[in-house]
């Protein structure tokens, strides 16, 4: 039961110039530019609204966040912890600004309506998919391959903006770790990562993930991780 995450990742080698900006900083000046995500236009200046990497692609200027809480989007696979059990579903903490709701109807297997705590109760960990984002929270579903309750193993948390690095291009990085440590790994786009294997493998996988997070901007990251996994055998 392993969830594959197929977000397309922009590689660092691309020839788009990115620079770190802070709120209120002028990114570019000129009439030709249009403000994109997290930027605003004041006269001729395009100004940053957020800490992150500014990118000018064509005429549009936008900021790619590198820190901050997870902002749920439809289609994201997330891992969350059950916060509360209600009569028709579960409240799940996915680490964002709002907790999300998993309705009973979105659970594909049979569950006794009179005792839904039997399937998952407070403190249990689930992987789920976001199918709707609304004001004040997101709705989750388990109706997809590889979703459901996660039992055993360990749960770690990383910065959600580093998730694409941990997964790598088409899952290359995560598969590398999985193969080397013989561990099941599920990565939630909210930055929660669930690992299950023997304790040695889990430990090694966790360290490898922390290495990726720490050195996420370094070049030749795959080689470094390979070396780390190989060297510890």
């Amino acid at each position: 039961m392993t969830t594959e995450n197929t977000e397309i990742i922009e590689e660092h080698e691309e020839k788009i110039e990115r620079k770190l900006v802070i709120p209120g900083e002028v990114i570019v000046t000129g009439d030709d530019y249009l403000p994109g995500d997290f930027t605003r236009k004041e006269g001729k200046e395009v100004v940053s609204n957020r800490f992150g990497l500014a990118e000018v692609s064509g005429r549009v200027v936008k900021i790619i966040p590198i820190s901050g809480v997870f902002e749920p989007r439809r289609g994201n696979t997330v891992i969350g912890r059950v916060e509360d059990v209600t009569f028709n579903g579960w409240l799940i903490d996915i680490g964002g600004p709002y907790s999300s709701f998993l309705p009973l109807a979105e659970c594909p297997r049979f569950i006794n309506r009179n005792d839904i705590g039997e399937f998952a109760t407070i403190g249990d960990v689930l992987s789920a998919k976001i199918w709707n984002v609304k004001k004040g929270g997101a709705d989750l579903t388990l109706k997809s391959r590889g979703l459901g309750k996660l039992e055993g193993g360990r749960l770690i948390r990383i910065n959600p903006h580093k998730v694409p690095r941990v997964i790598g291009k088409e899952g290359s990085m995560i598969n590398l770790i999985k193969d080397a440590t013989k561990t099941e790994i599920t990565v939630g786009q909210n930055g929660y990562i669930w690992l299950k294997g023997d304790s040695e493998g889990e430990e090694k996988a966790e360290n490898a993930i922390n290495l990726i997070v720490e050195e996420s901007t370094a070049s030749g990251l795959t080689e470094k991780v390979e070396k780390f996994l190989g060297g510890n055998k």
């Binding site: 209120g24 997290f38 609204n49 800490f51 966040p65 590198i66 820190s67």
Partner: peptide, 9 residues
């Protein structure tokens, strides 16, 4: 700012 909070300046 470092927490990625959206702020004007």
């Amino acid at each position: 700012a470092q927490a990625g909070v959206v702020m004007k300046e």
